[in-house]
């Protein structure tokens, strides 16, 4: 009340009251912010100038290879590896999460063991393991345990680099996603399950129609992160000689020694894809946030930059 400023005299109070509604409200001044913005602008200018003028970046070589056939086919491999590994991860993770929440200790224990094993070993090691499975099990057969088998063959024939890559990435992802799904399921109010069951829904139906759709609000944002992570983790498959985006670039620069420009090409593609994924994530978040006005989001940020991670979903959610 008695802040520094004009002296509090009855005259000024009277003036204030009489001016009343005629006074315009102006925003507070933020000289610090302006200074900060200026500093950043200068730094960005310096950085851009050096990137553009530094000959070692060899932008002409980058331009030459950005749509190179080898690079593009590597890009396709990276994309579908990401999609298939994430699909396997998501489907398996829902099963693992429901198992983890089972009252049967054997069922929940099995899920717990899976998580312990796959989260406890590096995915790179798992990939190489799958690739070399033949050393452990020379033949693989699929059938009734201790009974007849339907598929039978040598591991080397069945576990191609593609299969090894998908198994390694997908099974590992399932372990991480399972924890995300489990947390999502647990975040749904117990009363929702009560209401679903009181209406005569069976467990599976209550899970599918009531619990999981609400858990989605909590599952989607970290799943977006996982997908973006997966996009980049797929670059590990170069160790089992699968020509993804990175491996294709390596193949080219091992011939022409243009290492830096080709790594720039790779980075540009990865950045492009993660940007696309971020946009997709926003759309999905808005869909599953329906019925929740904005409370699903971080919310407070006023102006949104195109690359900020939680943007604009509020409007979509508040239908």
């Amino acid at each position: 009340m008695s802040a520094a400023g004009e002296p509090r005299t009855e005259a000024t109070v009277e003036q204030l009251v009489s001016a009343g509604a005629d006074l315009r409200v102006k925003r507070a001044r933020h000289p610090g912010r302006w200074l900060g913005a200026l500093l950043i602008a200068v730094l960005v200018a310096v950085l851009v100038r050096s990137v553009v003028t530094n000959e070692n970046f060899q932008w002409d070589v980058v331009g030459e290879y950005i749509f190179d056939e080898g690079i593009l086919s590597g890009l396709v491999t990276t994309l579908w590896l990401t999609v298939v590994a994430m699909l396997i991860g998501i489907v398996l993770s829902v099963i693992l999460a429901v198992m983890r929440l089972s009252p049967n200790p054997l069922v929940s224990g099995a899920s717990g063991f899976y998580l312990w094993f796959f989260r406890g070993t590096p995915v790179l090691v798992q990939l190489i393991f799958w690739y070399n499975l033949a050393a452990l099990f020379p033949t693989i057969s699929l059938g009734i345990p201790f009974g007849p088998s339907f598929i039978h063959g040598s591991s080397n024939a069945i576990i191609t680099p593609y299969v090894a890559a998908i198994l390694g990435l997908g099974l590992n992802e399932a372990a991480y996603m399972a924890e995300i799904v489990r947390a999502g399921i647990l975040s749904v109010d117990k009363g929702q399950d009560d209401a679903a069951r009181a209406l005569g829904m069976k467990r599976s139906r209550a899970m599918r129609r009531v619990i999981l759709p609400q858990a989605m609000r909590f599952i989607i944002p970290p799943t977006g992160n996982e997908t973006i992570g997966m996009l980049k983790t797929t670059s590990l498959v170069s160790v089992i000689a699968l020509s993804d985006l990175l491996y294709s670039a390596q193949a080219i620069y091992s011939r022409n020694y243009e290492t830096i420009p080709l790594l720039i090409v790779v980075s540009i593609w990865y950045l492009f894809l993660t940007s696309l994924l971020t946009i997709g994530q926003r759309q999905i978040e808005a869909y599953f946030g329906r019925g929740h006005r904005g409370q699903a989001k971080g919310g407070r940020r006023g102006r949104r930059l195109p690359w900020s991670t939680t943007a604009g979903a509020d409007q979509g959610a508040a239908r």
Partner: peptide, 8 residues
């Protein structure tokens, strides 16, 4: 607490 399904 009503327990309506909030997504519907």
């Amino acid at each position: 607490r009503f327990n309506l399904f909030p997504h519907m």
